[in-house]
Nucleic acid binder design. Structure first.
Lengths: 230, 230
DNA sequence: CAAGACAAAATTGCATGCAGTCTTGACGGT
DNA sequence: ACCGTCAAGACTGCATGCAATTTTGTCTTG
């Protein structure tokens, strides 16, 4: 049995990981042949991966102008987090109805892994924090819900990469723990309110630093119009 | 100023429309070079479009086995409609908060167009019925919510194409009208309940005919194992 | 010296060719 | 007549080449 996974699959996965772990920051250009060169494949495979990432909203492709890591605007950020709260509330409410022992085990072991990554200052920690939320969605058993949560969590990561202060943990692990506790107790209202608070905390972390808040160079430089330095 | 729209964009749009209008039914194979031939382009462009449609969940691509219009299973169908109710409830609740005159005009003119298409027995009616829901999402002003609703409405259309009885209108236009009335009155609970009932009605229309309910040929033929005809 | 025109470089959009994989139908052994 | 083997066909995965478009740097001109 051979690979069953094509080369563009590999590139897609690698690029995606690199973006989610903030190794590729929003706005970074992704020319087809550089990518092809670095991965040792042709532009065709690189392009295929880019198209898929564009479908995920992780990269933006403008005709004849190339691809770049997506740069969600501040307005998009608010929009995304608003919808994310809606989706994750649905996740929590579904989970509260029936929470299996295995599910709790999976969540607790995931949090342990998060903790390990944080202690090791591994870039994996950034991605794992998002994947905690995806794991929650998976445990509902709904593939659709999982897919949507995955999409929106990815885009949230992009927002944190763009607006958040660097090297800040994405999600508070303690909040993840207390959420698990509420789920274990099947305390619906408490679980929902913890999740809401958690997501608001994540969103605030994004707003805390507006260094990259301006969408384009023109807007950034508008503050430097005068030749005098303040 | 030239087109600014590439060839694969055109193919993507055409295929998408064909699928949503049920001209291409679930399961139909989509070989790259047939598509390229019929559109007068190369496999490259056709492939690009197929990859994007796969990202939308409208076609399924299996490595080395080609692409085909997606065939959601019965379980997926339930999953999709369940999430759709969640998303559209959010749409309605957001819309009830503030409903502009222009928004109502847009909805009413859309329904009129639906009616025209139905009277003309145009295949457009199928697509327009779905686009009513997308228009509702657009009116919330949330691009993210609109994108998600668009995705899930598309997949719902696929389900109706697969399981629904042929030539049935996808959505009751009357239900669309009464929904508009409830929105105009900003009657939140009534609007939500109309939407819920409407979506259940659509879902029931899917279940009404289980001719295509079996997922694969093996399962279909399991009823024909005995050589005697009943 | 500033501003517009223009040419060269960079990069994408697309077509085509080749190799590898899967499917299907035929062939030979039992 | 049946079953396993295998070879031909169909189709995809991928690389490469070419034309078109955008960008950038240079040059001429007022």
């Amino acid at each position: 049995m051979s690979t069953n996974t094509t080369r563009s699959d590999a590139i897609y996965a690698s690029l995606r990981r690199a973006i989610l772990e903030q190794a590729l920051k929003p706005g970074v250009k992704l020319p087809e042949d550089s990518i092809g060169d670095t991965f040792g494949v042709s532009r065709t495979s690189a392009r295929n991966a880019l198209v898929r990432l564009a479908g995920d909203g992780l990269v933006e492709m403008r005709p004849n102008r190339g691809a770049a890591v997506a740069m969600p605007s501040f307005e998009e950020a608010e929009d995304i987090f608003s919808l994310r709260r809606c989706l994750e509330r649905e996740v929590i409410e579904r989970l509260c109805k029936r929470m299996s022992k295995d599910a709790i085990d999976a969540l607790e072991s995931h949090v342990k892994e998060e903790e390990r990554a944080v202690r090791a200052s591994s870039p994996r920690s950034i991605r794992l924090a998002g994947e905690f939320h995806i794991l929650l969605a998976e445990l509902t058993g709904s593939a659709e819900l999982t897919g949507f949560v995955g999409r929106i969590v990815s885009r949230s990561s992009l927002i944190l990469a763009r607006f958040g202060r660097p090297h800040s943990a994405e999600c508070g692990i303690d909040e993840h723990r207390s959420l698990i506790a509420a789920l274990k107790a099947q305390d619906r209202t408490r679980a929902v309110s913890i999740m809401d608070a958690h997501l608001h905390a994540v969103e605030d972390r994004a707003n805390s630093d507006d260094s990259g808040r301006e969408p384009d160079v023109g807007a950034i430089l508008s503050r430097y119009l005068s030749p005098t330095d303040q």
